[in-house]
């Protein structure tokens, strides 16, 4: 489960200043870092745990550090990066709060993307009595890597409780169109840029 389309990359790229330093936590095949290096001239590093994805990062010509982002974030100094990105991974980490705090320690600003559990189709499936399965949540309950599913509202409450300033938000529906009305109900994928207040 990774951001794949160029428009997803463009959304994140649009929030990132050219020539900045970027860390992509859980960088997958390195596609986003490659895009950001080509389009935004960033100096980037990614962290990825899976062998096959590390190889793909090497093919993409990006700097990849093989490690577990919940254990190995000490590779990165406090304030060493302009942006720390965590795309479609926050719902799959064990200690959500400490991961976000680590991102805020390392980066001046943070960007996260996540599937919105509050999306109407997800709610509909729960009402019918099943755990949701969708494009953004493409797993069965027994094989999902996701351990902490949450909604757009939940995330904004989390930011408020932790004194985080939300700088940008973009919520997309399942067709990739921007949602302005009832984002917690109509949106399936959320992008946030935030920093410490």
């Amino acid at each position: 489960m990774k951001l794949k389309t160029r428009s997803d990359y463009q959304t994140i790229g649009g929030w990132i200043q050219s020539g900045s330093k970027v860390l992509d936590f859980g960088c997958g095949d390195g596609g986003l870092l490659r895009y950001l290096a080509d389009e935004r001239d960033v100096e980037g590093y990614g962290m990825e745990i899976e062998d096959e994805k590390v190889l793909q990062c090497i093919s993409n010509g990006v700097n990849v550090i093989q490690g577990n982002l919940e254990k190995d974030s000490s590779f990165f100094d406090t304030g060493a990066f302009d942006y720390v990105i965590l795309s479609l991974t926050l719902q799959a980490v064990r200690h959500t709060e400490s991961v976000v705090l680590e991102m805020l320690r390392i980066g001046r600003e943070c960007i996260v993307t996540f599937p919105n559990f509050g999306f109407w189709f997800h709610r509909y499936q729960v009402i019918l009595g099943n755990m949701p399965v969708s494009n953004q949540l493409p797993f069965q309950w027994y094989n999902t890597p996701n351990v902490h599913l949450f909604t757009v509202n939940d995330f904004e409450n989390f930011c408020a409780e932790n004194s985080l300033h939300i700088m940008d938000r973009l919520v997309l529906d399942s067709k990739g169109n921007k949602v302005n009305f009832l984002p917690n109900f109509l949106g399936s994928l959320a992008f946030y840029r935030f920093k410490k207040k």
Binding site: E43, N63, V64, F75
Partner: peptide, 15 residues
């Protein structure tokens, strides 16, 4: 690896 990252050098690390 950390010393290289601290210096902004291009580094890939596999364990």
């Amino acid at each position: 690896v950390k010393a290289l990252i601290d210096n902004g050098k291009n580094v890939t690390y596999a364990e």
